[in-house]
Design a protein around this nucleic acid. Structure first.
Lengths: 205, 205
DNA sequence: CGGTCTCTTGACGGAGTTCAAAGCTAGTGG
DNA sequence: CCACTAGCTTTGAACTCCGTCAAGAGACCG
Protein backbone atom coordinates (compact mmCIF):
# COMPACT_ATOMS: atom_id res chain seq x y z
CA UNK A 1 0.00 0.00 0.00
CA UNK A 2 2.36 2.71 1.16
CA UNK A 3 5.87 2.54 -0.15
CA UNK A 4 8.75 1.78 2.19
CA UNK A 5 11.11 4.60 2.96
CA UNK A 6 14.35 4.75 1.07
CA UNK A 7 17.22 5.61 3.35
CA UNK A 8 19.15 6.91 0.37
CA UNK A 9 16.60 9.66 -0.13
CA UNK A 10 18.13 13.09 -0.54
CA UNK A 11 18.70 14.75 2.78
CA UNK A 12 15.56 16.15 4.30
CA UNK A 13 15.39 19.07 6.67
CA UNK A 14 15.16 18.18 10.36
CA UNK A 15 15.59 21.72 11.63
CA UNK A 16 11.92 22.05 12.52
CA UNK A 17 12.11 19.04 14.80
CA UNK A 18 15.46 20.12 16.18
CA UNK A 19 14.07 23.50 17.11
CA UNK A 20 11.05 21.90 18.66
CA UNK A 21 13.22 19.71 20.85
CA UNK A 22 15.39 22.67 21.79
CA UNK A 23 12.41 24.48 23.25
CA UNK A 24 12.30 21.74 25.90
CA UNK A 25 15.90 20.54 26.35
CA UNK A 26 19.31 21.53 25.06
CA UNK A 27 20.97 19.36 22.43
CA UNK A 28 24.67 18.66 21.96
CA UNK A 29 26.17 18.23 18.49
CA UNK A 30 26.38 14.48 19.05
CA UNK A 31 22.76 14.29 19.99
CA UNK A 32 21.77 16.24 16.90
CA UNK A 33 23.78 13.80 14.79
CA UNK A 34 22.10 10.84 16.48
CA UNK A 35 18.72 12.39 15.85
CA UNK A 36 19.45 13.01 12.17
CA UNK A 37 20.70 9.48 11.65
CA UNK A 38 17.70 7.84 13.26
CA UNK A 39 14.81 9.91 12.02
CA UNK A 40 13.16 9.01 8.74
CA UNK A 41 11.08 11.00 6.32
CA UNK A 42 7.81 10.20 4.62
CA UNK A 43 5.18 11.83 2.44
CA UNK A 44 1.54 10.86 2.71
CA UNK A 45 -0.93 11.96 0.11
CA UNK A 46 -4.32 13.27 1.08
CA UNK A 47 -6.68 10.48 2.19
CA UNK A 48 -3.89 7.93 2.42
CA UNK A 49 -3.19 6.11 5.65
CA UNK A 50 -0.15 6.29 7.87
CA UNK A 51 -1.70 3.59 10.03
CA UNK A 52 -4.51 1.32 9.00
CA UNK A 53 -6.83 -0.32 11.46
CA UNK A 54 -5.24 -3.64 12.28
CA UNK A 55 -1.69 -2.37 11.89
CA UNK A 56 0.85 -3.25 14.54
CA UNK A 57 3.89 -1.19 13.49
CA UNK A 58 4.68 1.13 16.39
CA UNK A 59 5.92 4.53 15.34
CA UNK A 60 5.92 8.14 16.46
CA UNK A 61 5.54 10.79 13.81
CA UNK A 62 6.38 14.47 13.85
CA UNK A 63 4.30 16.46 11.38
CA UNK A 64 6.25 18.82 9.10
CA UNK A 65 3.39 19.94 6.89
CA UNK A 66 -0.20 19.02 6.18
CA UNK A 67 -2.57 17.46 8.67
CA UNK A 68 -3.47 14.00 9.99
CA UNK A 69 -6.47 12.71 11.84
CA UNK A 70 -6.47 9.81 14.28
CA UNK A 71 -9.78 8.00 14.62
CA UNK A 72 -11.62 4.76 15.26
CA UNK A 73 -14.70 3.30 13.61
CA UNK A 74 -17.16 1.89 16.13
CA UNK A 75 -19.33 -1.19 15.62
CA UNK A 76 -22.13 0.95 14.17
CA UNK A 77 -19.76 2.34 11.57
CA UNK A 78 -19.51 5.79 13.12
CA UNK A 79 -16.10 7.44 13.11
CA UNK A 80 -14.80 9.03 16.30
CA UNK A 81 -11.84 11.34 16.04
CA UNK A 82 -9.22 11.21 18.78
CA UNK A 83 -7.32 14.16 17.43
CA UNK A 84 -5.79 16.14 14.60
CA UNK A 85 -2.05 16.48 14.09
CA UNK A 86 -0.81 19.70 12.57
CA UNK A 87 2.77 20.83 11.84
CA UNK A 88 4.92 20.87 14.95
CA UNK A 89 3.02 18.08 16.73
CA UNK A 90 3.71 14.43 17.32
CA UNK A 91 1.28 11.61 16.74
CA UNK A 92 1.42 7.85 16.77
CA UNK A 93 -0.06 4.62 18.01
CA UNK A 94 1.42 4.36 21.49
CA UNK A 95 -0.55 1.22 22.40
CA UNK A 96 1.55 -0.70 19.91
CA UNK A 97 4.66 0.28 21.85
CA UNK A 98 3.40 -1.89 24.68
CA UNK A 99 1.52 -4.69 23.01
CA UNK A 100 1.43 -6.31 19.63
CA UNK A 101 -2.30 -6.52 19.31
CA UNK A 102 -3.58 -4.87 16.16
CA UNK A 103 -4.47 -1.26 16.69
CA UNK A 104 -8.05 -0.03 16.48
CA UNK A 105 -6.69 3.31 15.44
CA UNK A 106 -6.51 4.75 11.96
CA UNK A 107 -4.18 7.61 11.16
CA UNK A 108 -5.07 9.27 7.89
CA UNK A 109 -3.79 12.30 6.04
CA UNK A 110 -6.55 14.84 5.45
CA UNK A 111 -4.14 16.99 3.45
CA UNK A 112 -0.93 16.15 1.63
CA UNK A 113 1.37 15.62 4.56
CA UNK A 114 5.08 15.30 5.31
CA UNK A 115 6.34 13.68 8.48
CA UNK A 116 9.50 12.69 10.26
CA UNK A 117 9.09 9.42 12.10
CA UNK A 118 10.87 6.97 14.35
CA UNK A 119 9.92 3.38 14.98
CA UNK A 120 9.72 1.71 18.36
CA UNK A 121 13.24 0.36 17.82
CA UNK A 122 14.87 3.58 16.66
CA UNK A 123 13.18 5.43 19.48
CA UNK A 124 14.96 3.15 21.95
CA UNK A 125 18.23 3.85 20.19
CA UNK A 126 17.53 7.53 20.49
CA UNK A 127 17.01 7.15 24.23
CA UNK A 128 20.32 5.31 24.53
CA UNK A 129 22.14 8.04 22.60
CA UNK A 130 21.15 10.74 25.07
CA UNK A 131 19.05 11.10 28.21
CA UNK A 132 17.73 14.42 26.93
CA UNK A 133 15.52 12.56 24.50
CA UNK A 134 13.96 10.62 27.35
CA UNK A 135 13.32 13.92 29.07
CA UNK A 136 11.93 15.52 25.95
CA UNK A 137 9.43 12.76 25.40
CA UNK A 138 8.50 12.64 29.07
CA UNK A 139 7.61 16.31 28.94
CA UNK A 140 5.69 16.00 25.67
CA UNK A 141 3.81 12.98 26.94
CA UNK A 142 2.89 14.76 30.16
CA UNK A 143 1.52 17.68 28.20
CA UNK A 144 -0.41 15.38 25.97
CA UNK A 145 -1.77 13.57 28.99
CA UNK A 146 -2.97 16.84 30.50
CA UNK A 147 -4.71 17.68 27.24
CA UNK A 148 -6.51 14.33 27.18
CA UNK A 149 -7.53 14.66 30.82
CA UNK A 150 -9.05 18.00 29.97
CA UNK A 151 -10.75 16.57 26.92
CA UNK A 152 -12.24 13.77 29.02
CA UNK A 153 -13.66 16.28 31.47
CA UNK A 154 -14.97 18.45 28.65
CA UNK A 155 -16.88 15.60 27.07
CA UNK A 156 -18.32 14.71 30.46
CA UNK A 157 -19.27 18.21 31.52
CA UNK A 158 -19.97 20.35 28.45
CA UNK A 159 -22.89 20.43 26.01
CA UNK A 160 -22.34 19.87 22.30
CA UNK A 161 -22.52 23.60 21.68
CA UNK A 162 -19.97 24.35 24.38
CA UNK A 163 -17.65 21.69 23.02
CA UNK A 164 -17.99 23.27 19.57
CA UNK A 165 -16.81 26.61 20.87
CA UNK A 166 -14.05 25.01 22.89
CA UNK A 167 -12.79 23.35 19.75
CA UNK A 168 -13.06 26.59 17.85
CA UNK A 169 -11.07 28.49 20.47
CA UNK A 170 -8.37 25.81 20.54
CA UNK A 171 -8.00 25.34 16.79
CA UNK A 172 -9.54 28.42 15.15
CA UNK A 173 -7.63 28.23 11.87
CA UNK A 174 -7.89 24.45 11.64
CA UNK A 175 -11.66 24.45 12.09
CA UNK A 176 -12.22 26.83 9.22
CA UNK A 177 -10.57 24.58 6.67
CA UNK A 178 -11.83 21.31 8.08
CA UNK A 179 -14.85 19.46 6.66
CA UNK A 180 -17.72 19.79 9.15
CA UNK A 181 -18.03 16.06 9.53
CA UNK A 182 -14.56 15.93 11.07
CA UNK A 183 -15.42 18.65 13.53
CA UNK A 184 -18.54 16.66 14.41
CA UNK A 185 -16.50 13.48 14.79
CA UNK A 186 -14.16 15.26 17.16
CA UNK A 187 -16.64 17.03 19.41
CA UNK A 188 -18.85 13.95 19.55
CA UNK A 189 -22.03 14.71 17.63
CA UNK A 190 -23.47 13.61 14.30
CA UNK A 191 -22.78 15.81 11.28
CA UNK A 192 -26.54 16.39 11.02
CA UNK A 193 -26.77 17.75 14.51
CA UNK A 194 -23.75 20.01 14.06
CA UNK A 195 -25.43 21.42 10.98
CA UNK A 196 -28.60 22.09 12.96
CA UNK A 197 -26.69 23.69 15.79
CA UNK A 198 -25.15 26.13 13.36
CA UNK A 199 -28.40 27.06 11.64
CA UNK A 200 -30.27 27.38 14.94
CA UNK A 201 -28.09 30.33 15.75
CA UNK A 202 -24.90 29.41 17.51
CA UNK A 203 -23.86 32.05 19.91
CA UNK A 204 -20.98 32.11 22.33
CA UNK A 205 -22.17 32.26 25.91
CA UNK B 1 14.87 -9.54 48.11
CA UNK B 2 16.69 -7.55 50.78
CA UNK B 3 15.08 -4.60 52.40
CA UNK B 4 16.36 -1.21 51.29
CA UNK B 5 18.93 0.48 53.46
CA UNK B 6 17.32 2.92 55.82
CA UNK B 7 19.92 5.58 56.40
CA UNK B 8 18.50 7.16 59.48
CA UNK B 9 15.07 6.79 60.97
CA UNK B 10 12.82 4.20 59.32
CA UNK B 11 9.82 6.50 59.22
CA UNK B 12 7.96 4.74 56.48
CA UNK B 13 8.31 1.87 54.07
CA UNK B 14 9.14 2.73 50.48
CA UNK B 15 9.56 -0.86 49.31
CA UNK B 16 6.20 -0.85 47.50
CA UNK B 17 7.25 2.10 45.38
CA UNK B 18 10.75 0.70 44.88
CA UNK B 19 9.34 -2.55 43.60
CA UNK B 20 6.98 -0.70 41.34
CA UNK B 21 9.83 1.27 39.83
CA UNK B 22 11.90 -1.89 39.44
CA UNK B 23 9.25 -3.46 37.24
CA UNK B 24 10.10 -0.75 34.67
CA UNK B 25 13.77 0.12 35.21
CA UNK B 26 16.64 -1.17 37.32
CA UNK B 27 17.75 0.89 40.30
CA UNK B 28 21.25 1.29 41.70
CA UNK B 29 21.86 1.62 45.43
CA UNK B 30 22.54 5.31 45.01
CA UNK B 31 19.30 5.81 43.18
CA UNK B 32 17.40 4.01 45.89
CA UNK B 33 19.00 6.28 48.46
CA UNK B 34 18.07 9.35 46.45
CA UNK B 35 14.50 8.11 46.16
CA UNK B 36 14.22 7.47 49.88
CA UNK B 37 15.61 10.86 50.77
CA UNK B 38 13.28 12.75 48.46
CA UNK B 39 9.98 10.97 48.88
CA UNK B 40 7.63 12.07 51.63
CA UNK B 41 4.80 10.30 53.39
CA UNK B 42 1.29 11.44 54.19
CA UNK B 43 -1.94 10.09 55.61
CA UNK B 44 -5.28 11.40 54.42
CA UNK B 45 -8.44 10.56 56.29
CA UNK B 46 -11.57 9.55 54.43
CA UNK B 47 -13.28 12.53 52.78
CA UNK B 48 -10.29 14.80 53.32
CA UNK B 49 -8.60 16.50 50.41
CA UNK B 50 -5.13 16.02 49.05
CA UNK B 51 -5.80 18.82 46.60
CA UNK B 52 -8.56 21.37 46.89
CA UNK B 53 -9.99 23.19 43.95
CA UNK B 54 -7.95 26.34 43.60
CA UNK B 55 -4.74 24.77 44.89
CA UNK B 56 -1.54 25.37 42.99
CA UNK B 57 0.92 23.05 44.77
CA UNK B 58 2.20 20.62 42.15
CA UNK B 59 2.79 17.11 43.44
CA UNK B 60 2.77 13.51 42.32
CA UNK B 61 1.46 10.92 44.73
CA UNK B 62 1.94 7.18 44.88
CA UNK B 63 -0.90 5.44 46.70
CA UNK B 64 0.17 2.93 49.36
CA UNK B 65 -3.26 2.09 50.76
CA UNK B 66 -6.82 3.36 50.52
CA UNK B 67 -8.31 5.13 47.51
CA UNK B 68 -8.49 8.62 46.06
CA UNK B 69 -10.78 10.18 43.51
CA UNK B 70 -9.87 13.04 41.19
CA UNK B 71 -12.79 15.15 40.03
CA UNK B 72 -14.08 18.54 38.99
CA UNK B 73 -17.32 20.32 39.79
CA UNK B 74 -18.91 21.94 36.75
CA UNK B 75 -20.82 25.20 36.71
CA UNK B 76 -24.10 23.37 37.35
CA UNK B 77 -22.64 21.79 40.48
CA UNK B 78 -22.31 18.31 38.99
CA UNK B 79 -19.20 16.34 39.87
CA UNK B 80 -17.28 14.58 37.09
CA UNK B 81 -14.72 12.01 38.08
CA UNK B 82 -11.49 11.85 36.12
CA UNK B 83 -10.28 8.73 37.88
CA UNK B 84 -9.74 6.67 40.97
CA UNK B 85 -6.30 5.98 42.43
CA UNK B 86 -5.81 2.66 44.18
CA UNK B 87 -2.66 1.21 45.78
CA UNK B 88 0.23 0.93 43.35
CA UNK B 89 -0.89 3.86 41.19
CA UNK B 90 0.27 7.43 40.83
CA UNK B 91 -1.94 10.48 40.81
CA UNK B 92 -1.44 14.22 40.87
CA UNK B 93 -2.24 17.55 39.32
CA UNK B 94 0.08 17.63 36.35
CA UNK B 95 -1.29 20.92 35.00
CA UNK B 96 0.28 22.67 37.95
CA UNK B 97 3.68 21.38 36.88
CA UNK B 98 3.39 23.62 33.86
CA UNK B 99 1.41 26.60 35.01
CA UNK B 100 0.61 28.28 38.27
CA UNK B 101 -3.05 28.85 37.60
CA UNK B 102 -5.24 27.38 40.32
CA UNK B 103 -6.29 23.85 39.52
CA UNK B 104 -9.89 22.97 38.77
CA UNK B 105 -9.17 19.51 40.10
CA UNK B 106 -10.04 18.09 43.48
CA UNK B 107 -8.29 15.04 44.82
CA UNK B 108 -10.14 13.52 47.72
CA UNK B 109 -9.67 10.40 49.82
CA UNK B 110 -12.72 8.15 49.62
CA UNK B 111 -11.12 5.79 52.14
CA UNK B 112 -8.43 6.35 54.75
CA UNK B 113 -5.41 6.63 52.52
CA UNK B 114 -1.61 6.59 52.77
CA UNK B 115 0.57 8.04 50.04
CA UNK B 116 4.16 8.72 49.18
CA UNK B 117 4.56 12.00 47.34
CA UNK B 118 7.07 14.24 45.66
CA UNK B 119 6.66 17.89 44.84
CA UNK B 120 7.50 19.54 41.55
CA UNK B 121 10.87 20.56 43.00
CA UNK B 122 11.84 17.20 44.50
CA UNK B 123 10.78 15.48 41.31
CA UNK B 124 13.32 17.56 39.42
CA UNK B 125 15.96 16.60 41.98
CA UNK B 126 15.03 12.99 41.45
CA UNK B 127 15.53 13.37 37.70
CA UNK B 128 18.95 14.91 38.30
CA UNK B 129 19.96 12.06 40.58
CA UNK B 130 19.40 9.43 37.90
CA UNK B 131 18.16 9.23 34.33
CA UNK B 132 16.26 6.05 35.18
CA UNK B 133 13.65 8.14 36.97
CA UNK B 134 13.08 10.17 33.87
CA UNK B 135 12.62 6.93 31.99
CA UNK B 136 10.32 5.49 34.63
CA UNK B 137 8.03 8.49 34.55
CA UNK B 138 8.11 8.62 30.77
CA UNK B 139 6.85 5.07 30.61
CA UNK B 140 4.20 5.60 33.27
CA UNK B 141 3.01 8.76 31.60
CA UNK B 142 2.78 7.04 28.24
CA UNK B 143 0.68 4.27 29.73
CA UNK B 144 -1.53 6.78 31.42
CA UNK B 145 -1.89 8.67 28.16
CA UNK B 146 -2.96 5.50 26.36
CA UNK B 147 -5.56 4.88 29.05
CA UNK B 148 -6.99 8.38 28.68
CA UNK B 149 -7.07 8.11 24.90
CA UNK B 150 -9.07 4.92 25.27
CA UNK B 151 -11.36 6.56 27.80
CA UNK B 152 -11.97 9.45 25.42
CA UNK B 153 -12.94 7.07 22.65
CA UNK B 154 -15.15 5.07 25.00
CA UNK B 155 -17.11 8.11 26.06
CA UNK B 156 -17.53 9.10 22.43
CA UNK B 157 -18.51 5.68 21.12
CA UNK B 158 -20.21 3.69 23.86
CA UNK B 159 -23.66 3.95 25.46
CA UNK B 160 -24.05 4.49 29.18
CA UNK B 161 -24.74 0.81 29.70
CA UNK B 162 -21.68 -0.22 27.73
CA UNK B 163 -19.53 2.21 29.72
CA UNK B 164 -20.91 0.71 32.89
CA UNK B 165 -19.77 -2.75 31.91
CA UNK B 166 -16.44 -1.47 30.69
CA UNK B 167 -15.87 0.10 34.07
CA UNK B 168 -16.94 -3.08 35.79
CA UNK B 169 -14.54 -5.19 33.75
CA UNK B 170 -11.66 -2.80 34.40
CA UNK B 171 -12.21 -2.31 38.13
CA UNK B 172 -14.42 -5.21 39.29
CA UNK B 173 -13.40 -5.15 42.94
CA UNK B 174 -13.35 -1.37 43.15
CA UNK B 175 -16.84 -0.99 41.75
CA UNK B 176 -18.36 -3.28 44.34
CA UNK B 177 -17.19 -1.17 47.26
CA UNK B 178 -17.73 2.19 45.61
CA UNK B 179 -20.82 4.35 46.24
CA UNK B 180 -22.97 4.25 43.12
CA UNK B 181 -22.82 8.00 42.70
CA UNK B 182 -19.08 7.75 42.13
CA UNK B 183 -19.54 5.11 39.47
CA UNK B 184 -22.11 7.40 37.86
CA UNK B 185 -19.73 10.35 38.07
CA UNK B 186 -17.05 8.32 36.33
CA UNK B 187 -19.03 6.77 33.50
CA UNK B 188 -20.79 10.05 32.83
CA UNK B 189 -24.44 9.63 33.83
CA UNK B 190 -26.57 10.93 36.66
CA UNK B 191 -26.92 8.71 39.75
CA UNK B 192 -30.65 8.53 38.99
CA UNK B 193 -30.09 7.16 35.53
CA UNK B 194 -27.56 4.62 36.74
CA UNK B 195 -30.09 3.41 39.26
CA UNK B 196 -32.69 3.04 36.52
CA UNK B 197 -30.27 1.21 34.27
CA UNK B 198 -29.67 -1.32 37.00
CA UNK B 199 -33.34 -1.91 37.79
CA UNK B 200 -34.32 -2.12 34.13
CA UNK B 201 -32.32 -5.31 33.91
CA UNK B 202 -28.71 -4.76 33.06
CA UNK B 203 -27.32 -7.56 31.06
CA UNK B 204 -23.98 -7.98 29.42
CA UNK B 205 -24.25 -8.12 25.68
C1' DC C 1 -31.96 6.41 67.97
C1' DG C 2 -32.09 10.87 64.65
C1' DG C 3 -30.35 13.29 60.95
C1' DT C 4 -27.96 13.37 56.84
C1' DC C 5 -26.43 11.32 52.93
C1' DT C 6 -27.46 7.86 49.36
C1' DC C 7 -30.39 5.14 46.46
C1' DT C 8 -34.75 4.35 44.13
C1' DT C 9 -38.88 5.39 41.41
C1' DG C 10 -41.88 8.04 38.39
C1' DA C 11 -43.50 11.74 35.24
C1' DC C 12 -41.95 14.83 32.17
C1' DG C 13 -38.78 17.37 29.17
C1' DG C 14 -35.01 18.18 26.10
C1' DA C 15 -30.62 17.35 23.82
C1' DG C 16 -29.03 14.75 20.40
C1' DT C 17 -29.94 10.63 16.95
C1' DT C 18 -31.83 8.31 13.02
C1' DC C 19 -33.49 7.99 8.56
C1' DA C 20 -34.64 9.93 4.33
C1' DA C 21 -34.48 13.27 0.75
C1' DA C 22 -32.82 17.10 -1.59
C1' DG C 23 -29.32 20.77 -2.51
C1' DC C 24 -24.50 21.83 -2.83
C1' DT C 25 -19.49 21.46 -3.63
C1' DA C 26 -15.45 19.85 -5.30
C1' DG C 27 -12.70 16.72 -7.65
C1' DT C 28 -12.15 14.12 -12.05
C1' DG C 29 -12.08 12.71 -16.62
C1' DG C 30 -13.24 13.58 -21.28
C1' DC D 1 -13.22 23.97 -19.49
C1' DC D 2 -17.35 21.82 -18.86
C1' DA D 3 -20.14 17.98 -17.23
C1' DC D 4 -20.66 14.37 -14.04
C1' DT D 5 -20.44 12.14 -10.10
C1' DA D 6 -19.45 11.19 -5.32
C1' DG D 7 -19.30 12.95 -1.19
C1' DC D 8 -20.56 16.75 1.89
C1' DT D 9 -24.12 19.66 3.96
C1' DT D 10 -28.76 20.95 5.02
C1' DT D 11 -33.51 20.20 6.51
C1' DG D 12 -37.41 17.88 8.57
C1' DA D 13 -40.11 14.49 11.31
C1' DA D 14 -40.11 10.86 14.40
C1' DC D 15 -37.82 8.83 17.99
C1' DT D 16 -34.59 7.59 22.17
C1' DC D 17 -31.54 8.08 25.55
C1' DC D 18 -30.68 10.37 29.34
C1' DG D 19 -31.46 14.52 32.47
C1' DT D 20 -34.34 17.11 35.74
C1' DC D 21 -37.24 17.55 39.48
C1' DA D 22 -39.58 15.76 43.26
C1' DA D 23 -40.77 12.55 46.73
C1' DG D 24 -39.98 8.63 49.36
C1' DA D 25 -37.17 4.62 51.14
C1' DG D 26 -33.10 2.94 52.78
C1' DA D 27 -28.37 3.16 54.90
C1' DC D 28 -24.78 4.85 57.61
C1' DC D 29 -22.54 7.26 61.52
C1' DG D 30 -22.35 9.99 65.60
Amino acid sequence: MTKPIQITDPKFDTSSLENHIKTYVSLSEDEILALNSLVQYKKIKKNQYLLHEGGVAAMSSYVLSGCLRTYITDNKGTEHILGFSTPGWWTGNLQNFYNDKPSQLNIQAILDTEILFITKETKEKLFLSGAVFERYFRILTERSLIAFQERTLEILSLSAEERYWKFYSQYPDLMLKLPQKYVAGYIGVTPEFLSKMKSNGLRKT
